[in-house]
Structures are given as structure tokens and as C-alpha cells.
Amino acid sequence: MLVLQVLTNGILLGGLYAVVALGLALVWGVLDIINLAHGAFIMLGGYLTYYLFTGLGLDPFASLPLVMLAMFVLGYLIQWGLLNFLVRAPMFNMLLVTFGIDVVLTYLAQIMFSADLRTIRPAYAGSNFTVGGVTVPWTNLLAFVVALLLTGLLALFLQRQRWGRAIRATAQNLGAARLHGVPPRFAYALTFGIGAALAGGAGTLYGMVAQLTPYVGVPLTAKSFAIAIIGGLDNPLGVIVGGLVLGLAEAFGSLWLGPTYRDAVSLGLLVLVLIVRPTGILGRAS
């Protein structure tokens, strides 16, 4: 029974992890940019949801599209006004600048929102149902469904949409994007904007199951790396696999070895995947 419950916990956690990593994986896979400010975007999305909820009484699930739109605009502007100027620089320059953005956003958040712990608590938060002795929290289940939905939508967009195909072409080479009638600068900004929107959506879901402080970003960025790499960057569905693997590894590592070993387990797994199969479980063999 305990094993079944832990399995359920791990799967639900994995769903949340997947949506947390989705934006980072997209930007990394398509633009070859590692966005160290990813976690800060999630944090901002969470705060936006919090203020829409406490200020306007807007249900978090209803505010999801609004938050994503706002974060899209922010992401678009950051890529267009700043990161586009660094695309051809050595790779660690981009890492440093996104780190700088992370620091700036985190401390702006501290100034604007204070270091108080914030929680988003709609009336149904914490409600659950029981199936065969296993307790399933509704919020986590809904978050899981939204994660699948967003991932599916992104996959469809990249496969079917004209702009989606242009974005993927940009990933292959800059000239190809022009053939699709999309200027590369626009394609970059669009992709980064979508990545930020997905991070914002993740923030909405994250804020419903955990507390928000200005400092939640960095651990979330770290988790996102692990998930993106374990799942592979070729396919958005990879994050679902990566999220589930990490969620289950943490849940069972915590059960069998003890809660202090969860990080050692998940990071050890990450290093192993990187060394043995750097393109991820779903990725093409290198």
C-alpha cells in the first residue's frame, strides 16, 4: 500500500516537474540557449497568479492564460532587446547574462513583493479523493493534466504550425528560417517568449502546491536542467519522461534510502545519464 501511494506521489510530482522544465527545454533545444533565469520566470508567474487571486479573486486555473501572456511579452522583450545581441558570442557569455537577469529579477521581486511567504489557496486546495487506499490530491492531479496539455500543445505547434516549423528550422540553421519567411530575430524572440510563457504557467501551478518567495527560482532552474537532460531535448515529450523519472527517483530514493538522499539520487542519476547517454533517454544516440 505504501509503495502504491509513493508511486502515485512520484508520478504526480513528475507531472509538476515536467511543466517546470518545459520552457527551459524548449529554449535550450531550439535556440541552444541555457536560460539560467528560467526559475526566476517561474517565480514571477507564481507572484502574478498570487496577485490576480488575492487582488481580483481570479481562480488560478482561470488566470493561467493571462499569466502566460504576460510572461510571453516579458520573454519576448528580453530576447529581442538583450539576448539577441549575444547569440554569436561564446556560450558562457549567454550563461553569465542569463544569470545576471536571474539576480536582477530575484532582487526586484524581493523589493516589490518582500520576503514574506506567499501561498495561493483557492477553496479546493488540499482536497483529495481516495482510490483503493491511495490518496490523490486534486490540485496535483489537475496540475498533472495541465502539464500534459501544455506539452502536447507545444509538440503540435512545433510540428504543424508554420511558425512552429520556422522555429525548428531556426534551430537547424539561421538561413533556413528565412526560407520559411520568418526573420531569425523574430523567431528567436518568439521562441524565448514561448519559453517564458511556459515558465509562467509552471509558476501558476507551482504556487498552488508550494510557497512562493523571491528565492524559489534557483532550485527550480536546477531541477529543470536535470529533467530536460534526462528526457532529452529533441522532443517536448522528453520532459514528461524526464519529469516522471525524476519524480519517481526522488520519491523512492526518499523512501528507501531516506529523505536526505533524494538530491544525491536525482543528481547522481543526472550525472549518469549525462555520461552514458548525453542526448537523454528519448534522444537520438550520439
Binding site: V6, L255, G258, T260, R262
Partner: peptide
């Protein structure tokens, strides 16, 4: 009797253990 990592955010496994 369980020790957990400082800054842990997910207690679902521990809570399930406690519950059992």
C-alpha cells in the same frame, strides 16, 4: 525518525510513511 534535507519542498513520501 526521519531526517530530511534543508530546503526540501516535497514531503509526500515522508507523509505517506508517517500515515502508514
Amino acid at each position: 525518525d526521519e531526517r530530511y534535507s534543508t530546503d526540501a519542498s516535497d514531503f509526500s513520501t515522508v507523509i505517506s510513511q508517517l500515515k502508514s
